[in-house]
């Protein structure tokens, strides 16, 4: 109602304050939703507020978080990356077929997988920029090609990673599991990255490519870095995924493509570029994961999980569009 007519009085002041705080902290709605879900769950299950629970939930959500980290950077740039599905599949089959027991060999192949992920992403960036193609279509094609390559390496789920590698998800360091430490590293990375020149330029180009170019940034370089990082994080997601599954899966990556976009959007990242924060995406990934646990604890049909995920996505999108409208009004 207040979006169209000129707001006045107390409700309008509340609306403006809400829109302002949304604008400053785009993941506010996600945070409120996460707290609500966790509180609801704590009424149904014991041990929700324990370190063990944090370790377990993070272990479940980390693949999505890593994939969504790259997706967040691409979305902020104003693009989208569907090829992460192929990078994840390819990463798991390379790991499951090339990792031996020897830690040196594992480290070498892990590095090769990460480099391959970055390389594939960089290639996406080049194709998008030089051929002026839609990111959606370029990365859709990439997903298809990479899935085919993954299937030629491993036609079905199989292969194995060493036992010590597969134990990472549940290993403890100072009381926190490996995945929680990775999560902390992700957040630290983000606060560093968004203040770097590259981080600033990516966000600027997402808001307005023209002004970014006018200020001297190279679109080619921006796109290589953006999609390269997305591929790198997708490869990292693949490596972590093999610690969960202990195996290679040539089709598994598709399970993370749309959820990575959904996690970012629930976390307040704009699909139109220029706006977003990784902490929001991480909260979004937590929400999409914990929703399943809540449905389990409620003892209702598990079909409610996609229903609830959809409702949460809608709420997040509504809140985000509200914030965007207010931002546009302020800019005018």
């Amino acid at each position: 109602m207040s979006a169209q007519t000129k707001p006045s009085g107390a409700p309008a002041r509340f609306y403006q304050a809400w829109a302002r705080s949304l604008d400053r902290t785009p993941f506010l709605v996600a945070l409120v939703m996460l707290l609500a879900i966790v509180l609801a769950r704590s009424q149904l299950q014991s041990g929700v507020f324990t370190l063990q629970e944090l370790n377990l939930v993070t272990a479940s959500a980390l693949t999505l978080m890593l994939a969504a980290t790259g997706q967040t950077i691409v979305l902020i740039r104003g693009g989208i990356d569907l090829s992460i599905g192929g990078v994840i599949s390819l990463g798991t089959v390379i790991a499951a077929t090339r990792f031996g027991e020897d830690p040196g060999q594992v480290a070498l192949w892990a590095a090769i997988i990460l480099a391959t992920g970055f390389g594939i992403g960089a290639l996406n960036g080049i194709l998008i920029t030089v051929l002026k193609l839609q990111p959606f279509l370029v990365t859709l094609a990439g997903w298809s090609i990479l899935t085919g390559i993954a299937l030629t390496i491993l036609p079905t789920d199989g292969g194995a990673v060493p036992g010590w590698w597969a134990g990472f998800g549940y290993s403890l360091f100072f009381g926190l599991s490996g995945p929680v430490w990775v999560l902390i590293a992700l957040v630290l990375f983000w606060y560093w990255f968004r203040a770097t020149r590259l981080g600033i330029v990516i966000q600027a180009a997402g808001s307005s490519e023209r002004s970014a170019v006018l200020s001297g940034a190279s679109v080619l370089r921006i796109n290589i870095a953006t999609y390269g990082l997305s591929g790198l994080f997708a490869a990292a997601a693949a490596l972590y995924l093999t610690t969960q599954t202990g195996t290679g899966s040539p089709l598994i990556g598709r399970d993370y493509i749309l959820p990575s976009v959904a996690a970012a959007v629930v976390g307040g990242v704009s699909l139109f570029g220029g706006r977003g924060h990784l902490v929001g995406t991480i909260i979004g990934a937590f929400i999409l994961t914990i929703i399943g646990d809540l449905v389990f604890a409620l003892r209702v049909s598990s079909y409610w999980q996609p229903v609830m995920s959809g409702v949460i996505l809608l709420i997040a999108v509504l809140a985000s569009s509200l914030a965007e409208k207010s931002a546009r009004r302020q800019n005018r």
Binding site: L56, S60, T63, L64, Q244, T245, S249, I252, D255, Y256, T289, G292, D293, F296, A297, S301, S302, Y303, Q305, P306
Partner: peptide, 17 residues
């Protein structure tokens, strides 16, 4: 009966529960 929505990750999470 627990249905996990078609993905490996969902079934892992469901099994953890």
């Amino acid at each position: 009966i627990e249905q996990a929505e078609g993905t490996v990750q969902a079934q892992i999470n469901s099994l953890n529960n």
